[in-house]
Design a protein around this nucleic acid. Structure first.
Lengths: 341, 341
DNA sequence: GATTTTCTGATTTACGTACCTCAAAAACTG
DNA sequence: CAGTTTTTGAGGTACGTAAATCAGAAAATC
């Protein structure tokens, strides 16, 4: 049978109260006694019954998720996952609040983060936008003893505790590798469509992509990046124009949102003239485009994993536990039409 | 505040005992009263506190994992994951026993399963080998009221409750798609190395692979399958011989274990003459071969996910809960050298 | 209407841990 | 040594649910 606190007390020859003091780091235990108890814990292989402990504590963690009021499918999915977490919050003893902020606006984000401080939640997760005010706001959160995690887009150099998202440089490299190999030795141009170079994740994807393109596929000429601000209409326009202007485009890398527009533009192209297309995020649009053959490969970050990881890390920080890197690494999924989930 | 059983009792105007009877399906409640309680549960949005319930029940689930005494990396990893689950067993109120059986031996497997019946565990998970005795043994397990889940390799048509593993046909299709596209329009032969065609997962992978090859890459000629019984030495030999005999092999699909031998054989080939290689399972060997460029793409099933899914489903069956298909679907991961975890 | 059967209420104990109080013992202090 | 401080013991309550008992009420049966 699993050992309990009673077993430890008996084994160490002390009372339950003393065991409790040792287990929960309360003062008033002599050094020798503390060691005796700790030895008993080791001997019996005691592990705290977390369920019972939480039940007894009755503590709930309060977290705030600050997210851009973006309407692209991926952000919607992230928000859905946070809502799903909220609906599970009873069972997991968490209380999560969502705060929406204007997208791509560092000052607005910083203001929102500052506004959270007086509430003194246990932790905050947010989708980073780069900018000095945001760094400063993170510093103030940390100063108030609040755990901070960035989600999807990181803010390196800040005092955040953790980043819950993928390695976007690696994602860009993967995309280049797939695109280059799928192009199959042909020569031609590659078009790249991004949302905005002001967002770190897009910038990093591009860097990785260009690096591998240069190293491994010198015969493919990458055109200057087109920014479509994650807007389907704009993306459609930009892609159509590029395809018209450069008839030798044989590859297309869409590293942001707005894929609905891109798919729309691709549909206009004769099937035999269509470029190889690699895009990001499995959504309704990209899924059917993949099935249809308009998109050849899809890179994906699992929104559910990211949100759950963020919550797990926040909880851990509150209890002073270290982050288990291997467990919290978010994978870059590759989907072809045959292995879609 | 979260509603508790007390709140329901008060709201429905009944006693705690009656609420308990309704919640746990115990007899002795009039139909009208039961409905009143159920209505109160809905109104208040009550959800059972699983932690508290488990604490009160003190129940532990006993499961047996029956696995082939195979020494390939993947099976070792599966066993490691089961051991990891065992070490977590305290917290998860499970008691798991591992039973090893000779590999590829239907009768031995069936005997092992029969031997479990008298122990009356709550559930059994096993790696299926096909054969009538196994079907019969599964039927006997089910008759004894034991939950049954197949792991990694399935046994369709049997009375098993669930299969925790990937869609191997889709895996084969994905492999063909990658291999075909990576080959890039060239003509040539494709070699296929399997462990054994007696195992269902290998057979299904081959079917999927051949289907897509036929549909989409008619210019690539697939050689007859070579069986290497998951044995590295044999695999090395077979691959070397094939490469010598057919100089126009431009692609290689390894759908079983024994990749150490295959990698060894590939290393002997001049870099510019190396075929495109797609293999299964991320192991120490395949990981470094991927980094090195000897393997071009890797399909993977996450052993940890599979084991945890099996346990989750077994627990669910014991409590009579339905399997949430979406949650238990095991993904086919694709790894290139850039997105290795 | 009496009897049996079926429901329901009230109450208790237990699960393993956290946290609190109060008293007693032991260890220090001067 | 007396007095003070620190350490320890003993015991209780609480968390939310499960499961049991037993008495009493309501319904069904004859």
């Amino acid at each position: 049978m699993k050992p309990t606190v009673h077993d430890i007390a008996r084994s160490a020859g002390v009372s339950l109260a003393t065991v409790d003091r040792v287990l929960n780091g309360r003062p008033g235990v002599r050094h020798v006694t503390r060691e005796r108890v700790e030895q008993a814990i080791l001997n019996l292989g005691y592990v705290r019954d977390v369920a019972a402990a939480n039940l007894a504590k009755g503590r709930t963690y309060s977290f705030v998720f600050v997210m851009p009021a973006n309407d692209n499918s991926f952000m919607i999915e992230i928000r859905d996952e946070v809502h799903a977490a909220i609906s599970r919050s009873g069972a997991e003893r968490t209380q999560i609040r969502i705060l929406e902020v204007p997208p791509f606006d560092a000052q607005a984000l910083a203001d929102a983060l500052d506004g959270i401080v007086p509430d003194k939640p246990d932790g905050v997760a947010f989708v980073a936008v780069e900018g000095d005010p945001v760094h400063a706001a993170v510093a103030r959160l940390k100063e108030a003893g609040i755990a901070v995690v960035t989600l999807v887009s990181d803010l390196p150099g800040s005092e955040r505790d953790h980043f819950a998202g993928i390695d976007n440089n690696a994602a860009g490299r993967t995309a280049a590798n797939l695109l280059g190999r799928f192009a199959g030795g042909r020569e031609g141009r590659i078009a790249v469509i991004a949302g905005s170079m002001l967002v770190r994740d897009h910038r990093e994807r591009l860097e990785g992509f260009l690096a591998v393109m240069g190293e491994s596929f010198p015969r493919l000429a990458v055109l200057p990046v087109m920014e479509a601000r994650d807007d389907p209409a704009l993306a459609a326009e930009v892609v159509s124009a590029a395809l018209r202007h450069y008839p030798d485009i044989i590859g297309l890398y869409s590293l942001g949102a707005g894929n609905r527009g891109i798919v729309h533009a691709l549909r206009e192209v004769a099937p035999e003239a269509r470029p190889v297309v690699v895009a990001h995020e499995l959504t309704k649009t990209t899924r059917s485009a993949l099935a249809e053959g308009l998109i050849d490969a899809l890179l994906n970050q699992d929104a559910g994993h990211e949100v759950r990881s963020a919550i797990r890390v926040l909880k851990g920080r509150v209890e002073g536990l270290p982050v288990i890197a291997a467990q919290e690494r978010i994978r870059i999924d590759i989907f072809l039409k045959d292995n879609m989930p």
